[in-house]
Structures are given as structure tokens and as C-alpha cells.
Write a protein that binds this DNA or RNA. Sequence first.
DNA 1: CTTGCCGGGAT
DNA 2: ATCCCGGCAAG
Length: 482
Amino acid sequence: MESKCILEKSSVGASIGGVVDFNYRPGRYNNRVPAMEKSSYTPGPIFYKYVTDGGSTAAVKNERTSSAGSGHLPGVGVLQDVEKTGPRDQKDIGSTGILKRASPTLCLGTGRQLPGSSISLDIRNPGKQAELANSFRAAQGQNVPQAERQPLPSSHIPVPRNRNPSGHADKEVMAATVLTSLSTSPLVLGPSSVPTEPTSKTWKDVLSASYSSSTSGNWSWDASDQSVPSTPSPPLSKDANPGFLHSTQGDDASEDVSESTHFMFEDPIPRKRKNSMKVMFKCLWKNCEKVLSTSSGIQRHIRTVHLGRNSDSDYSDGEEDFYYSEIEVNMDSLTEGLSSLTPTSPTTAGPPPIFPPPLSDMSRSELIGVNGLQSHLSSLLSQSAPSALCHIRTDHAYQAAAPGPVTHVRTVSIGEKRQPAASTHTAVTKSHTLTTPATKSAPGTRKPRGEAKKCRKVYGMEKRDMWCTACRWKKACQRFTD
DNA sequence: CTTGCCGGGAT
DNA sequence: ATCCCGGCAAG
């Protein structure tokens, strides 16, 4: 892995260059004209010779860091010759090409960091949530009042912010304060800056005390599942995730940040989402994950199930309002959500064994907000982090998966070929086919090997010039077809 | 291992 | 379009 630029006179270039060949392509079967003769065409007195002995990454790097400036890179010089130590090296040199091809994946990943925690986070396990939240807070060096660490007592039903129950005015005010401070605070906070941020603690504490599950990720589509105790968990502030924020870049980062902010505070005016947003109503009663599509429905649910009111009476004193929250659900965001979640850390292990039901925009955004925990989560959560979705694109995907429309994986798999083969490729591939429309025909179209002897067999390598062109080109033999 | 040839890069 | 080759699957 080294590269060097050899400055040489034109005449010298020929003698060393061996491959100075302007009229003939280097090839096994080409007649080679002595390079010397060709070199006489060299117009300039001097040209650069770019000799590479391996990959070009180092070369590029060196060029960048050197004070000599650029201009020696392949393709830059006015006249240059690329000498390769072998055919393979050409491929290695092409690492830029590889990067280029892989870039869509990368873009996808970095653009939409929405990793693992999102899906693998066990949102139905409040104990774990509390644990995570506490550990996260502890990691921030904050003193968390003991009272806050305790799960919310069952008597305390968190009231959604967009309701306005009397008696919660103080918290509303605090929340407003929080909003204000947030709006003027830098969104991206370094880990070190967090503990010293005066407003940070304040609003986080406020949030911890006043926000309920609708912004904390304690949300589930399986509204009927009450087997697992669930308590609205403290909100997971986004500045809790310096790693995440730092790993995103530019517009995407700010977009995600603002997006999560937007959802964290239930901004009634979706800034970005224009597509099929659906308002759902979620019961906030402890251990109840009920989600209904109508307010009357959720009110009735609360009245009858939690308040013990008469089921056939539609009378409502408004108390139910305290126990449910509106949530916005993007009904068609499954695909987008999945694709957005696509990978940022190609090194992570396999995908979740079970893919969660439709990822709503809501949950996705929440997860963005929750994202701060990711670094902690990575060790606490199971290996089901979907951040490994990128593994979809491995050359082996179609080997592990049943024949299906996955051939396209090849084009983007180059950089990932060394990934250890995950045992869950099938599931992954399935997920992938969900998100990426298959554009190519199924792999089954490969022509079965014929019985007839082909040119190669008939003539042998030593008479390769007698082969049909297809055989020479390693294509399907045209002479001895089946 | 060898062989056939697909997919894709280089020119 | 032509030529070439990496790499895969089948044998």
C-alpha cells in the first residue's frame, strides 16, 4: 500500500514504463508494440508516472496531507501513465469506484440515522426503560432526585401536555419555559457541555416529571397486550444522545433534530409530514396501551375500563381527557420508516428476529428522540438492533435466502463482503425486499449448465484463439449451444 | 478443484 | 459495441 510519484523524463518513462501503450490496450492477447516507439509521441518534456502498489486510499490520503499539493493523482496530470503491478491492482485502485458505488448505502445510512434502539427497544418494558433512563442520566453525571427514579405511582396518571387540566398549570408553565429555553439552546450538545448547561437540567427534570408516554416511546400497536406492566416512562431527551447527533451531519442532522423536537413537544403543526397522518388516541392509564382511532372510543374505554363508569352511558365529565393522549400516526410510513432506519453501522450484528409491526411515524420520531440512549442501549438491548439492516446488501444474501428478487444486492455489496455471514440473512433479506422494490429478475434465470463441451473444453486453453468470442469473453458459448 | 457464464468494468 | 475479468454456482 504505497504510492509514489516518479518524475521522469519522457524517454525514461518508456524504458521503465513497459506499459506505455497508447494505441494498444494492455491485454493478454494483444500484440505489444515496444513502448519505446510509442513514447516518442510524448509531447511534453516531462510527465508524471504514477506508480501504485496497491490501493489508492493511502495515495489519496497522502496527496491530501502532503504540502506538495495535488495534481499527481491519476486523471489529473496532463500526461500520465498508470503502471500497474498486475491486473488486480487496477481493481484495488478502483477503490474510489467502489466507494462511489457504495455511497448510496452510506448516504442512506448517515442520512437517516435511525438505528437500532428504535426497533429493538422494548417499549413495553417500563422497568427497562426506567433503568435505561436512569443509567443514562447517571452517565450524564446528573443528580436525579430519588422520587424521579421511582416509577410513577399508579395514582399518578400523567396528563398529556395538550390537555389543560387545572392544577397542572405550574407544569405547563414549566414546560413552556422548557420550550423557550430549548428554542434558544444549541440543539447539538457535546457530552461535556450537557451537565453544565443550566437549562438542560431544568427542562429535563420538568420533562421527566410532566411528560408522559406519548413522547417517551412507551407506545405499542398491540393495544390489547396488557400482560407486561407498563408505566409511562420519562422522556428521553435528545441531547442525551451526543453520539447520535454527532454522527449525523449537516441538513440531515438538523432535520432529524428538529423533527424529534417537533414530536417531542407534539407540535400540532407537522412541519414536514404531509402524508396520511392519522390521529390516534392512546390510553395513558397505567399498564394500558390501548390505542383507538376515535376520541369517543378512547373516552369510552377509559370510562368503562378504568373509571368504572357505566358502559352504556355516554355521559362524560371530561375526566377521561386526562387519561388519553392524541398521537399522530403516519399510516404509510412503513416503507419510509424502514428505509430511513437503514443502517449506519454496518458492523452491527444481525437484524431483529421479529420485525415489529408497522413503524409509525410517531414511533419513529419518538425513537429519534430516544436515540440519545443508543450508546447505552447498545449494550443493554438485545442484538436485534435493526441498525444492521445494511447487511441486507451482502453478496451472500441471495445465497442464504430462498430464491427471490434479491439479485440487486450485488451492486452495492462490495464494501461489505467481508461481513461475517449472519445467520439471519433470510429475515434480513425479507425486510429488504419490503423496502426496496426488486427491479431485476429473479436469480433463477441463470442459464443452467449445458451438457455440451464448450470451446474451452474442446480446444483447451492453449487454443483459446479458436474459441468462439463468447467463450473468450467468458460468456455463454455460442458455438456449442445446448 | 474445474468449468460455464453472469454481471459489470474498461475502453 | 467490444473486450475482458471477478466471482459465483454447478459439477
